[in-house]
Amino acid sequence: MKKIFSKDNIKKFLASVLFVAIGVGLLGGASYLFTPEKFHTDTVKDVKPYGLLAEPDNTMDAIIYGDSEAFSAFSPVQMWEEHGFTCYVCSSASQYISLTESFVRQTLEHQKPRVVFLETNAIYRKMNSDDPGLNKIEATLPVFKYHNLWKNIDPAGINENENDYCWQDDLKGFKYIDIINKSRHPDYMKKTKKLQKVPGSNLQHVQNIYNICKEKGVELVLISAPSTVNWNYAKHNMMVKLSKQLGVKYIDLNLEDSVGLDWNHDTCDRGDHVNYFGATKVTKFFGNYAAKTFSLPDHRGDAAYSDWAKLKVKYAEVTARSKNK
């Protein structure tokens, strides 16, 4: 016993405790600095989903969550132009369903949409054993979540009015890509009775998302964006089964011929994602469906939504170069 509590050991123990305390303190300080409200940016990698946090509270009629399939297929500004409802695509590349759950939880604190769409590709993304642990660490020390925003920290913005410095996305989460790279497998939806299993604990995260929506009084809908690379009939069958289990609607745009996709022209990466041309067709179909099915309001002409009216011009500027393609 004497050996364990020697002066040297006590000194080393106290030094270790102090080291950990300073380390946690530094990470806490970095977390304060890196929380999105503390800076503004328009170029940071995958910041688009965070842009929803900057939108005024309770201004979204619909929100679409998911991975890159979502941000490349659905254009909220086009929906506004055609139907007048507000929508945000809260998605990021290679998003894990656990992160989607975190976005749903976080954003529904500020928004009360009529309907929430969950794009289904992320449900099939296999998570590694680290993800739940990382989520917990991120919740405690946000620097682990927002560290990628280091390129855009504006020290002058700290302690200013947060709304002035919170970044808003002019495309409302949509990613504009006008590259044309045709698909090699346009006949990917071959009918089968098979079910493709959802990996790991992903179904639990979908259930959690459903529970959050239910608690907030928001309708959840599953939606599959067109992708010849990522989607197939066995996944479709599984999503049909899942939607029945949850008691929610499911729409698979891979089976909707009336979308009118041309896989020789409407994809930017050989069928993995639709490009701007594909997104225009998908959004047209989706906008009609969403506006009618959920009776989404038309805010065009409403002064409270004047910012959205201005986006029309910006959207035209951004997409202008596609006219020559």
Binding site: I22, F34, H147
Partner: peptide, 23 residues
């Protein structure tokens, strides 16, 4: 000594290519 260690930790945490957008 500790400054070096903390700098290393902060470099990993802040400049590490992990999380959203990185595989």
């Amino acid at each position: 000594r500790w400054s070096i260690f903390f700098a290393m930790i902060l470099i990993i945490v802040i400049f590490g290519a992990y999380g959203t957008g990185y595989i």
